[in-house]
Design a protein around this nucleic acid. Structure first.
Length: 621
DNA sequence: GCGATCAGCT
DNA sequence: CACAGCTGATCGC
């Protein structure tokens, strides 16, 4: 449970996920998601009073969070003070001191957090640096490298501080099976049961909280049914959820609740009191989603555990595991990390100490003081996926065929009030040029979209997931653009995990192009020759990372150049916003990144002392 | 009568 | 298997 006090050191005039005590004086409020432990004080009368006298204080959140919040009458008074923001749309917000008129500008970007419907992280960019408040999140290993707004061009942004969901930041929780693996296990159990007869029913013993909708949607889809729940009101504007839940009790899958639901179940009744029409007793099993974790060296274990004659626990987590958090942090390498949760049995000091290891090293900063051409930023490179592979091995008793469901999003809302969508870099000539970190690149050790696909196929073969596995690519390419409003993580699967298949951000929409022509070489070409620091140099990463990374300092212009080139293929983004590039020097119009073969040619010419200007990178391929 | 806090429970 | 709550008791205003 979050114990975050509500404020960040860098931007103390805003409050997040806490609305009591000193937070009453904030100039702006942010709500990351609709769980009670992040809403403390939100219905307080003091706050209500303050809002009535204020012209500028607003609550910012995602559209889905707004919808869920206002569904509860206790929070209905917020209606006129909420400013819902689109995901991944940088928005400038004025933080106004209403007494003095003093003003500070900050740009906020909502990033999907994969925790529950509407959950987001907040990235703040302003004169006190870039800070990331994660809220609660679950991101699979590698996803952070695909989050556009954590990058500037092809570089990882310089993050001053991360305010972190550290729920499972403890080596005890080293591994938590992926959403797909857990869902697959639950699906199998449910399928085996309800196929026996119409009187075989399943009760999903879910806590009263948002976050299980992912389960309902996927089970509903797979078994062509709806899940019985107590109320639909909160989802009335979310058709993609609404269509998989029902208040009609005549269904084989229930997630209904009752204050004494466990007793009901013991008496072979469902919490809704449902019985079969013809008087035949129901055959009920209960499945209780719970977080199961596995240590670093734990052997393969099932994600389903039978705890009684008709009771099961099924693995399910809304929070990132230790290794997922490590992946996230070691990619971003912030200067500071502040935990917002202290895992049970730990102290703040312990957690802070452990997190220090994940912060950017002092030496990284010191080593690159000399910067005649401006400052190097870290490359964005496709991350190794060692972890996900070991995941699969760990749980290979189950089919890992990713089960996903497209989730559309509610209609685009208009931005009202003072919120202005902007491109971050355009509005922020500040921050990022000084005291830059080293160019800590990661070495790409995947080489292996192919490998992974193979693995997936193998697994499909052993299982009964044919239906689910089939047709995935089509599903993905037709994803509605903003479906991440509900859940992030399962879209970012291997089949679409490179940025090239994910046109997003204001700038890429402008181009609408898949051609690389928009690439200016200024962002990327120097990178082809940059140093690549790996392994021990770049971070003190987890064992899983270490196992993939060489320990030596290497120079690999070719690989790096190719990487950049590949990213260029999605017609990325930076046409407007790449002022802040590897070096802060003007770009060369109409130039672009050479391909690997072009590079080889380039090197040969360079070696031969020939004039490389004769080479035309714009040759078609 | 309301809010805050805590124990207990799931 | 430690999530995100609920309920109920107690205390203070």
């Amino acid at each position: 449970m979050s114990s975050f006090a509500g404020r960040m050191k860098e931007y103390p005039t805003i409050s997040l996920d806490r609305f009591d005590r000193e937070n009453l004086h904030a100039r702006a409020y942010f709500l990351s998601h609709c769980h009670k432990d992040h809403m403390k004080g939100l219905k307080g009368p003091l706050l209500k009073r303050k809002l009535q006298f204020s012209r500028t204080v607003r609550l910012y959140c995602s559209f889905v969070t707004k919808e869920l919040l206002l569904n509860n009458p206790k929070y209905a008074f917020w209606e006129e003070y909420i400013v819902p923001l689109e995901l991944e749309s940088p928005t400038q917000i004025s933080l106004v001191d209403e007494a003095s008129g003093e003003k500070e500008e900050v740009v906020v970007t909502l990033l999907p957090a994969g925790h529950c419907p509407g959950s987001v992280m907040f990235l703040f960019e302003g004169s006190h640096g870039n800070v990331l408040y994660t809220g609660d999140f679950r991101l699979p290993v590698g996803d952070v490298s695909r989050m556009e707004h954590l990058h500037s061009g092809s570089r990882v942004k310089d993050i001053q501080s991360i305010y972190l969901d550290s729920t499972f930041y403890d080596p005890r929780f080293y591994q938590i099976p992926s959403r797909e693996v857990c869902l697959s296990g639950i699906s199998e159990l449910v399928g085996n049961w309800i196929s026996q007869s119409p009187h075989h029913v399943v009760w999903l013993n879910c806590k009263a909280a948002y976050g299980y909708e992912y389960l309902f949607i996927n089970l509903g889809e797979e078994f062509n049914t709806q899940i019985h729940v107590n109320t639909l009101a909160m989802f009335k504007k979310m058709p993609e959820i609404l269509s998989y839940v029902t208040t009609d009790r005549r269904t084989q899958i229930h997630a209904c609740r009752h204050p004494k639901d466990e007793e009901f179940f013991q008496g072979n009744r469902l919490p809704c009191g449902c019985t079969a029409a013809d008087g035949t007793p129901l055959r009920i099993i209960s499945i209780k989603p719970s977080t199961m974790w596995f240590g670093e060296r734990t052997k393969k274990t099932s994600v389903i555990i039978k705890t009684g004659g008709s009771s099961y626990r099924a693995c399910f987590s809304f929070h990132s595991s230790y290794s997922e958090i490590k992946d996230f942090l070691s990619y971003l390498q912030p200067v500071n990390i502040y935990p917002s949760v202290i895992p049970i049995g730990r102290t703040l000091t312990e957690v802070t100490q452990m997190l220090k290891l994940m912060c950017r090293k002092q030496s990284d900063e010191a080593a690159f003081v000399y910067k005649p051409l401006g400052v190097l930023k870290r490359s964005r490179v496709q991350r190794p996926t060692c972890d996900s592979e070991s995941d699969d091995e760990l749980f290979d008793g189950l089919d890992v065929a990713p089960v996903r469901k497209k989730l559309g999003v509610q209609k685009e809302g208009t931005l009202e009030t003072t919120a202005l969508p902007v491109c971050v870099e355009e509005s922020l000539p500040l921050t990022i040029t000084d005291a830059q970190p080293a160019a800590h690149n990661y070495v790409d050790c995947t080489e292996s979209n192919g490998e992974e696909e193979e693995e997936e196929e193998e697994e499909e073969q052993q299982g009964d997931e044919e239906k689910v596995g089939a047709g995935q690519p089509e599903d993905i390419s037709s994803q509605p653009p903003r479906w991440e409003d509900f859940f992030t993580t399962e879209t970012l699967t291997d089949s679409q995990n490179s940025l090239r298949s994910q046109p997003q951000s204001c700038c890429s929409e402008m181009t609408g192009s898949q051609t690389p022509d928009l690439f200016s070489d200024e962002e990327t070409a120097p990178d082809g020759f940059s140093l690549t620091l790996s392994g021990s140099q770049s971070n003190h990463s987890s064992q899983n990372m270490d196992s993939c990374l060489p320990d030596t300092l290497i120079i690999q212009p070719e690989l790096d150049g190719q990487k950049q080139r590949e990213e260029g293929d999605d017609g990325i983004i930076q046409s407007e916003s790449q002022q802040l590039s590897d070096f802060d020097i003007p770009c060369t119009p109409e130039s672009k990144v050479p391909r690997r073969d072009e590079l080889s040619q380039l090197y040969r010419k360079l070696a031969a002392g020939e004039d490389i200007r004769a080479l035309d990178y714009r040759t078609e391929h």
